[in-house]
């Protein structure tokens, strides 16, 4: 099976779905590669190069470079979606959600309910989040908790190249608005990805390690760290299950509760500040649904309640580390 990067896996999903369905269009800042200059359009493909190669292949009608106008980008994508296209809008950094959030949570996410089930909004918003690029407070956040709490949205956090391709394919074919949160720190991670198109269903957790001593739930870029922690613990004889829910909405509550039933110990790793985080959400799930199964307090490994700092040592300390995950698991034992 070919081994490709997370970035290439996303690109491949976009390319295959665009080839398969003429309704799929891309729009966003520089997704084509910089329209209107005197050089070649298509020589890049988004600031991270994720959409590279698609403009030359599909042209300016399907790979649409837009002004830096996030409200108009997301709103137009929502409008195109509700009238029959299947747009994939790129929001670049998720931090920019502030300047277009109305179009996401008040418009796209609510069309179907407000209009009594008559609207279909097959919109995908691709955006990237997470720390690690020394990009400072306005280019390093995650923000999935804010999106997860919005009814009408689906929120995806792919943690590997294989998942990125299958989940994005699913997102594009989905009839509801989906926010696809890519992890900047994973773009160069490589893994086995089938050449053929495939879908990974939403709401089904991936089990990356099996163990009966504790359960770690982690999202996005925290998944490889949780796996590394599990492998370190295994060397000390502690066998933990690692669950990656893949989507925060819908959330595979069943998988989490089933695993908790077996292990009785839960650690949630969430790259976001602690209050109203997915960590807090899943802890609440455990306490409200599986109190009797719990043998120890739920461990929450999150960022501090601060913006993302710039200085490398501060930023490194901000993000949950393998060591902190190991420590949190040990505390539950």
């Amino acid at each position: 099976m070919p081994v490709i990067s997370y970035r290439k896996a996303i690109n491949q999903a976009l390319e295959q779905e665009m080839a398969r369905d003429a309704r799929v269009i891309l729009m966003g800042i520089d997704v084509g590669g910089g329209a209107g200059g005197s050089g070649d359009v298509g020589s890049v493909g988004g600031v991270m190069g994720v959409t590279k190669g698609l403009y030359p292949k599909f042209g300016s009608d399907r790979v649409i470079d837009t002004p830096i106008s996030e409200s108009a980008i997301i709103g137009a994508a929502a409008g195109a979606a509700v009238t029959g296209m299947r747009p994939v809008a790129e929001l670049m950094f998720v931090d920019f959600i502030g300047v277009c959030f109305d179009q996401i949570y008040n418009q796209a996410a609510k069309f179907r309910y407000m209009f009594g089930g008559k609207a279909r909004t097959p919109l995908v918003i691709r955006t990237m989040g997470g720390a690690g690029m020394r990009a400072g407070a306005q280019h390093s956040q995650t923000l999935h908790p804010i999106l997860t709490m919005v009814p009408g949205l689906k929120v995806v956090m792919p943690s590997s190249p294989y998942d990125a391709k299958g989940l994005l394919t699913r997102a594009i074919r989905d009839d509801d608005p989906v926010v696809f949160l890519e992890s900047k720190s994973l773009y160069d991670v490589k893994g086995e990805v089938p050449e053929e198109a495939y879908e990974i269903p939403f709401g089904e957790a991936n089990v990356l390690r099996d163990g009966r001593d504790a359960t770690i739930v982690a999202f996005g870029a925290m998944v490889p760290r949780a796996v590394a922690a599990a492998d370190l613990l295994a060397k000390e004889g502690v066998k933990v299950t690692v669950l990656d829910p893949r989507t925060t909405s819908p959330l595979d509550e069943e998988a989490i509760l089933d695993s908790l039933d077996e292990t009785g110990r839960l650690v949630v790793v969430d790259e976001s500040p602690p209050r109203c985080s997915l960590a807090a959400d899943i802890a609440a799930l455990a306490v409200s649904q599986a109190f009797d199964a719990l043998k120890a307090p739920v461990g929450l490994v999150t960022c501090p309640h601060t913006p993302v700092p710039f200085a490398p040592n501060l930023e490194d300390a901000y993000v949950p580390s393998v060591a902190r995950i190991v420590e949190a698991v040990k505390k539950t034992l």
Partner: peptide, 10 residues
């Protein structure tokens, strides 16, 4: 207005 831009794009 942004939504109508999208409809017009369609």
């Amino acid at each position: 207005p942004p939504i109508a831009v999208g409809a017009a794009l369609t």
